[in-house]
Design a protein around this nucleic acid. Structure first.
Lengths: 209, 209, 209, 209
DNA sequence: GATGAATGAGGATTCATTCAT
DNA sequence: CATGAATGAATCCTCATTCAT
């Protein structure tokens, strides 16, 4: 009985905890994306989240830890969105387009988080740097692999895979950043953006247009 | 005689002034590129420049003014490097390659300055924002114009010019950033980088490979 | 119950806040009166108040805001002390004497605050200037009105009211300043000061001694 | 011959020195009266005087020394303006009026200097304090003496001489300050001011108007 | 757990004064 | 003598973090 009660209580408590945590993260996403890491203060975040100063430090160890958490969230979303394309399976180009579409979805569904990540790059914190390095390393290897496979199978032209992989990542980053900064009305919808990027990035590399 | 002496003296003084100013700018370039605008303190800059606290403020009005100066320097270098390509003149692709080579040269010749600009994006200061907006606007229009002209003359495929222009700029930014972060030995030389970027960006868009 | 506790807690907190604020104001009164606005540093104030650097800025927005607060306090005390004398009511001279006594009381009861105000005059801060201008304007008008009324009713001699009003205010200011600077033992008590000033300022102006 | 030349040269040099010194003092008068001691910077003074930073320190040891110099100048002017009134000589009241007129002349002829002295009072510097204390002590004694003599000879009423002397000084100070702050057009001319102050200060104290 | 007052290291900037030229 | 670049102590203020209630 007691246990059950305790369980129920703790479950409710657990949920409230989790909701609060989420509220802070969500507020921080907005604040960081608007002002950038340094210009955003903990005061901004707690005001936006509607909590007190002390409470923040119950949920997060530090400003850095909060930021890292958001970075990890973004990395998770991106990692989930991307499926490594097996060149032996049919229609690899279609798989790649689907990847592009899912990545564009992440940017459109989480504009603040995406902007936050794209605004600040390296140098804020060693942990963040390491995580982002791993993400970008993963992305580069993925793209590079696709390029190598494409060339092997005669689908794509030979290029400097390392450079082109990096360039492609940059192309997406800038497209997203510009998309998120520009007012909605004057910028393409997600479908157009995805296909335009795919066209540009992939079609251009095909041996035969 | 007196005038000559005075002239000589003031000329020497003028030169020393200008050297100091340059020394501060150069130190700041390094510091800002390493730590980013906010994390870099005036103390870091004056230590690196080997001057005293007060001396800094003789040469620059504020931290913001110093940063703006460097931004302007970068913008000047980029603007000088780029020549608008006239589609009626012969060999437009070659003119574009030359632009790419000169832009790559800027990144290689001014690695700290370039990294500084690529690290921080918008939001530090209204003046800086305005200047960068103008630079990127100029770049986008330039690339977009080239794409439109290319399509008109039947040289390149039709694409969403706005998106592709932005993506191309991002491609260069990321390539430079990666280049500057990675150790020299493992990264391509400027010739390779330039031609790889050109190949990727332009060849891919040609109607016939 | 919960509310009551919370209430009690917040009431105590509220009181402590208010006490601290008062402690800072009181320390600042002393510091400003001793060194003057410019020569007094925030460090001096926080040392005297026994608080930390940051704490000061919880209670006051800036050094200026603190000073303004004290100025307002003084203005409030003076304004409360003075009752406009209605010439139609009986014994106007007595009402004036009572005003003088109350003003002297303010100076004796708040020596630091009074000295602070008398030391610094205009030019520290636009807000302060405006407030003081209004105070002195009010004082001048009050005295001038009394002089005009006195002359009308034939009680006092005709004088240049504007000049004499200003002069009378200066007479009080200097008397207070001198009083507060001189050691207690060698200076008159408040009763003597009040009646001497009254005698000088008012009796002298009466038509018949 | 040589000596004569040297003499001529040094005399000219001496004169130039003295002119420069005067230019600095004159500029400082203006600057100090406008901004007050603390808010006025050496930069302001040298800009107004049209000299270089280093030159200033050839002519004055420090900012304090400059200010002290001006204070001394003011004290000299005031001291010269005032003639101790011998009660045995005829027409003492007229001698007093002449004193008042000469003091008013000092204020009108040296508005910046006068305002400078009246704005800042004590606490800037020990030397300045001492000099001003001596001046005010002299003034108080002079007025007090006159009051005592006046009472002795039956000319004036008996008052608290110490308080009234201080009050009279304050009356003049405030009248001057107000005069110098207010625009010329709306304020009395020197004749009116002098007679109004005399009327107020002295006539009021006479046994028979 | 929640609160918010308190802390103090650190940051940008100013300015009187010095001194090599 | 004149100059003005250089100095660095001192000032105001911010903000991430702690901790008693």
């Amino acid at each position: 009985m007691k246990l059950a009660t305790a369980d129920g209580r703790s479950r409710r408590a657990e949920q409230k905890r989790s909701e609060r945590r989420e509220a802070i993260l969500s507020a921080a996403e907005r604040i960081f994306s608007q002002h950038g890491y340094h210009a955003a203060s903990i005061s901004d975040v707690i005001d936006a989240a509607g909590i007190s100063r002390g409470t923040f430090y119950i949920y997060f160890d530090s400003k850095d830890a909060l930021f890292l958490q958001l970075i990890e969230r973004f990395i998770g979303l991106m990692t989930d969105a991307l499926v490594v394309v097996d060149p032996k399976k049919p229609e690899p180009a279609r798989r790649i387009l689907e990847n592009v579409q899912r990545v564009v979805d992440v940017a459109f569904d989480h504009p603040d988080l995406t902007m936050m990540v794209l605004r600040e790059s390296r140098g804020l914190n060693a942990d963040v740097d390491a995580k982002l390095d791993r993400l970008y390393g993963f992305l580069r290897e993925m793209v590079e692999g696709a390029l190598v496979n494409g060339a092997k199978s005669g689908l794509t032209r030979r290029v400097n895979e390392a450079v082109v992989a990096t360039a492609l990542i940059g192309a997406f980053k800038e497209a997203f950043l510009h998309q998120l900064v520009t007012e909605r009305t004057r910028s393409p919808d997600r479908q157009t953006l995805a296909s335009s990027l795919f066209e540009f990035g992939i079609r251009g590399l095909l041996v035969s247009g």
